[in-house]
Design a binder for these strands. Structure first.
Lengths: 339, 339
DNA sequence: TATATTTTTGGGAACATTCCCAAAATACTG
DNA sequence: CAGTATTTTGGGAATGTTCCCAAAAATATA
């Protein structure tokens, strides 16, 4: 009595019907007498009946659940992506399970197992900076569970992907610095394992080259996105015999860390050194000076990723061709590059 | 063949065993011959067998899943709480489903249904600012599913709760302002529907009273936490014939919005007007001047909430008495109150 | 009124697993 | 070696739902 949950059989017994009829009434099947349906719905509401999704999932082998795995969610970026994705998925009747791998390859793998065990219908993934082997994601493919990568995408897998135009964003950022008269432009880059780090680096390189500025390898530092290291590298750059007159950072947290270091050394921004970030984190508009940054349509990344996943799920028998969506970026100029 | 998932029956047939024996071998039941167990485990690994949690959940009526519902996750507060809770819950073998109600009562109710339908074993909740009726949470109680409230707790329900000492935090913040010589201290309060708004307001009131400063109702404004309204109210306060010389804001985003308004009007902080926030959002240390704020142990809130839920889940038959955990706050003094 | 047609309902199987009880196989005891 | 105790295995029920097919009831047609 205490722990007994109400089932369609309870309703059936009370109303002297079979479970089949009750099931039909509740699912809106046409072949059920109006009067009967009303009686069933009324009693169901009264008893606070909730259909048991577990039983249905067991039967249909679909859980109506999508897994989203992100490497972190302390910066505002991934929460916003998740909100966008969740919005689209909820509209399509899907539930969402969120995992964060905490930038750890190990955790990513164990999350992967967890999602498989809970039988999600599909996953949205942004992998960790440590991930170089993608076997654990290929299991999903083999089981016919669609995977969509976003933000951090990976060439090795032929699945749908959503990214922003990192190359173009970086190119414009650096070109902007050049136009404001900067010549020794440093780049605090992300780890080589991330496709977007590589693209931004390429954008940086090509912008310099196309404006006849030689590339100085000592001004390019790849780092692992751990903020205390950013601090060290910025200091290193500033201590160079020929220090940079501008810094393009891989993301806004890095740029903000740089800005703190630079301010603490009493250098004038942007006169002595200009700074550009990437993402347009809300903090960027609040700090002093405001941070020039490459904004990306964050929640649209989530929405698009969700849509691509739904496209894969829609096809009953054969999975459709994977799609690649590249969203545009936009340079937002603030005080850190222009007085 | 294509879509067929491997079950214990497949293994049983291949090895000429019954499904019972295979089940026992896989679950580590003692009564199974060593040789048999080895054969089963070997074949299971070879076939990439994954036990179907759905079937087990259906049988045991436990999903090993906990729902966490938060009103938003754009500020860093709730993501941090979630990370803390998830950490503790994962350790105990629980899966986590995250919902955000987006500060909407409607969405909260529909999330509630979703969590019921997916048969979570328990939930952690911080309700929306619109929620005044808690019937939808009482359904969980009735079904024997434990609920723990955190951050935004509610008197109407006798369940476990985790909060910080809002009263004391507010008291100390206001006392600090008084000690720096401020006398006309305004309070931009949260909505009356939130228990923590009310506690902070009480702390504010008592601090003034205990220091023989009369309470001026025109300096107390309750608002709905929508930032553009904060902007309007701060302007209103500054336009008073006798404007405040200090502002205690319900949270950091509000305080930062106030700070922007005040700076744009050219007032000196803290000389002409001092500001204190609540929560110690990471932004608070980055802006200029740094924001004095009442810090709370954010991820510990999540951890404690998870622990209280596990306590409820641990008891097989009878639910133990609800617990209330109140965590301490700490005032962090920065430039917005002291030069 | 009898028959044909349509609407409405009921009874099982199926989903993957665990658990209980009984049966079979093996080991132990006198 | 028979009898008993123990280990190991198998069979079936149960979990809550949907879906298919057949049965029953209601309605239409001749």
């Amino acid at each position: 009595m205490k722990n007994h949950q109400i089932t369609i059989i309870d309703i059936a017994n009370t109303l002297n019907l079979s479970k089949s009829t009750v099931s039909r009434a509740l699912t809106g099947h046409p072949n059920v007498k109006l009067k009967t349906r009303e009686r069933v719905l009324e009693l169901a509401a009264e008893l606070d009946y909730q259909r048991n999704q577990l039983a249905i999932s067991l039967l249909t082998n679909r859980t109506q659940t999508i897994g989203i795995m992100v490497p972190e969610f302390l910066s505002s970026f991934f929460p916003k992506v998740i909100i966008g994705a969740q919005d689209v998925l909820a509209q399509a009747g899907y539930n969402v399970v969120i995992c964060h791998s905490n930038e750890s390859y190990e955790t990513e793998i164990s999350n992967t197992k967890l999602l498989l065990a809970s039988r999600v219908d599909g996953i949205l993934v942004s992998h960790t900076k440590e991930t170089r082997n993608f076997e654990h994601f290929k299991i999903f493919e083999r089981k016919g569970i669609p995977v969509v990568f976003f933000n951090r995408i990976v060439d090795e897998m032929s699945v749908s992907k959503v990214a922003v135009d990192d190359y173009e964003g970086a190119y414009q950022a650096v070109e902007h610095l050049i136009k404001t008269g900067k010549r020794r432009i440093a780049h605090l880059a992300g780890p080589d394992s991330l496709q977007n780090s590589r693209s931004r680096l390429n954008g940086y390189r090509d912008a310099l080259t196309n404006h006849q500025i030689p590339i100085d390898p000592s001004l390019i530092i790849s780092y692992d996105l751990t903020l205390d290291k950013a601090n060290i590298y910025v200091n290193h750059l500033l201590n160079l015999p020929q220090p940079p007159d501008a810094l393009f950072a891989i993301n806004d947290p890095t740029a903000i860390e740089a800005l703190k270091v630079i301010k603490s050394r009493g250098l004038r921004i942007p006169e002595e050194i200009a700074i550009v970030g990437f993402s347009d984190d809300p903090i960027s508009a609040l700090i002093e000076p405001g941070l020039t940054t490459v904004s990306q349509p964050v929640d649209e990344i989530g929405r698009q990723a969700a849509r691509l996943l739904l496209n894969q799920l829609a096809a009953e028998d054969e999975r459709p061709e994977p799609e690649l969506v590249v969203l545009p970026t936009r340079l937002i100029v603030r005080g850190s590059t222009m007085a």
